[in-house]
Nucleic acid binder design. Structure first.
Lengths: 350, 350
DNA sequence: CCAAGGGATTGACACGTTTCAAACATTGAG
DNA sequence: CTCAATGTTTGAAACGTGTCAATCCCTTGG
């Protein structure tokens, strides 16, 4: 900037004004400065701006798994909303590891980000509380909270789990399994709670709900769970499987197909998230749909509101309702010989 | 830091030493400083560090589409390599838009990133040349280059296209189509060139290769292309389709299935990238496999090398060979009634 | 012709670090 | 007791901006 000022024959302050408040500068000088900038190929130094401003123009988004299309869709929504505000999203992948999550939070705090949007790995709030206490707003993504110190955007996962398993029960399935994990993840445990509730509501013994716990929410974890299901005798084997997310469901589907089990005839499957690949799967996958981009967008907007409103901000909790999309993977009435329909019926949950 | 210094009863310089060169500080004072830091909850200001250092510890990665699992895998590889070096990856999504790409490059340059890893949208090098001229190293990802000013990591896309279409020809297909676009993307045009070459090598008229150009490399673009294919009469319809990437291939597959066409019986499909969902598709998808994480890792390492070596750096071009993974979607000999095999044969290309 | 007013420009300071020469303290040798 | 050597600690000077009170210059009304 000093060079620009010299070349344009003006003071440093004027250059700054041209960049930040052009209206204050006369057209003639403005022109000279702009030319000098072009001539020298001057590029603003964002670090210095941040240092001066005290805050960066970056928002941190910490997700569980960038390879999961659910999260990239959330990220896209967040990115759009941030761009409208001149902010940018810094995408961080915790990979479901507490240490990596902590490392990224450190990094983000050191960068003095405007705020953090996060789907936390654990349920330990201490680190996040610290962040908030030091002045970095936090918005919980894809998880509700009763915590007074932050906003949250979530989908009612209990309702989603309920809808999925109610659907399986309604279709006549008796041996039903839940595939998902780790249970430490709130999304997983909530969906499980919903599944259990559906059993109760359907007049079943909730203890009957079989549980296949997985370590990750990935395709390969799903394949492993699928192998375990395949390994069971026909009498033990569940006929309806609800998976905590679509990646697991796709993995299970792959494993079953690999062993010659037919979906939905031998085993029906319902996933969660309704990622684009769900409808494109070997057997189009029934799934509980979440408004993925909207979640990201809303979380970002809550954060921006919080920043603007300052101390007068009232933390808000936004909860969306999930929708069950019924496709071929579960769309067959048990104990009937009706052929699987492939209708893409999407209907409101519950 | 000033506060820490005061509380610990030392000077500012000492606090800095504790943080950066602890060995220089006596254990006793070091202890006092560390305690003060903990007590005050002091967090380094990365902006100030960067300002002082002149460079950030961030590496920019600009990809065409974060929703494409190919790129998230590349990102994972890059992230791992960066972490080993104490750097972090900032993931930017150009969404195949030139303006967004330009905007992100501006942003990255303003942040004084260590370097930029990029899969460019266009073939206009001017903006990147500027970056390099001003001192920000650039590594091209997933695209080769003859340009002297930067390193590149690529996969031989001509070879990949060649392998895919040769495979279709060898399986007895006569009407073959290429689905992909925009042709402005080097990856797409190279794969197309390979496809044309395969026609020639197979003794066909390259003019016979049908072309379905798409706007994007996405599932929905694939579905649209699929609809166009379905719309053709049986006599015109290609029996073998090579798609420029797996998302397109999955889209085509979905459209065909939706209209009752059987894959591979009526139409065989080969994709590109071999993303995880390829093997999990409705019909497991034949695909040209690229070492996705390795691409990201290698690109990052090239960049770090370039930074370390400074002006003595020799730009390098790394090229990987793709491998064709043959699965059910193309694994049937034309004009024979043999049933589709589901073998997961992966064999070296060509 | 003067004073007041207003737009345009300036200059100095602050932001939070790192760095490095200089000052200081301690020790051991002569 | 002095000096040199070694090990610690200090203080001040950058780094590149944004801000804001102060100054300058020009116009306008009296």
């Amino acid at each position: 900037m000093k060079d620009v000022a010299r070349v344009a024959g003006v003071s440093l302050g004027t250059v700054s004004n041209v960049l930040n408040q052009p209206d204050l500068v006369s057209p003639a000088t403005r022109r000279r400065v702009v030319d000098a900038i072009a001539q020298l190929g001057f590029v603003r130094n964002e670090s210095a701006r941040q240092l001066r401003a005290g805050r960066s123009r970056t928002i941190g988004l910490v997700v569980l798994d960038v390879s999961n299309p659910f999260f990239t869709d959330v990220a896209r929504g967040a990115e759009t909303a941030a761009a409208e505000n001149g902010s940018i999203i810094m995408l961080c992948n915790s990979g479901q590891k507490v240490e990596r999550e902590a490392r990224y939070l450190d990094l983000l705090e050191e960068q003095r980000v405007q705020g953090v949007l996060i789907t936390p790995v654990g349920s330990d709030n201490a680190r996040l509380d610290l962040l908030v206490a030091r002045g970095t707003p936090v918005v919980l993504v894809d998880r509700g909270t009763e915590h007074p110190n932050w906003c949250s955007v979530a989908v009612d996962d209990v309702l989603g789990g309920l809808a999925a398993v109610s659907h399986l029960i309604e279709r006549g399935h008796r041996r039903i399994a839940f595939v998902g994990g780790p249970m430490g993840l709130r999304q997983v445990s909530d969906r499980h709670v919903g599944a259990v509730k559906a059993m109760t509501d359907g007049g079943r013994d909730p203890g009957e709900l079989m549980l296949f716990e997985t370590t990750w929410l990935t395709l390969s974890s799903g394949r492993q769970a699928g192998e375990r299901i395949v390994g069971l005798s026909e009498a033990e084997r569940p006929t309806g499987v609800f998976c905590a997310n679509d990646l697991l469901a796709l993995g299970v589907l792959q494993a079953l197909a690999g062993h010659g089990l037919r979906v939905p005839h031998d085993v029906a499957i319902v996933g969660y998230d309704d990622i684009d690949y769900a409808a494109a799967a070997a057997v189009p996958l029934s799934s509980v749909r979440q408004p993925r981009e909207l979640i990201g967008r809303t979380a970002t907007e809550l954060l921006l509101d919080e920043m603007r409103e300052g101390s007068s901000h009232q933390h808000r909790r936004v909860t969306f309702k999930p929708e069950l999309a019924i496709r071929a993977s579960s769309d067959m009435r048990r104990r009937r010989s009706s052929s699987a329909r492939t209708a893409r019926a999407a209907r409101p949950a519950v």
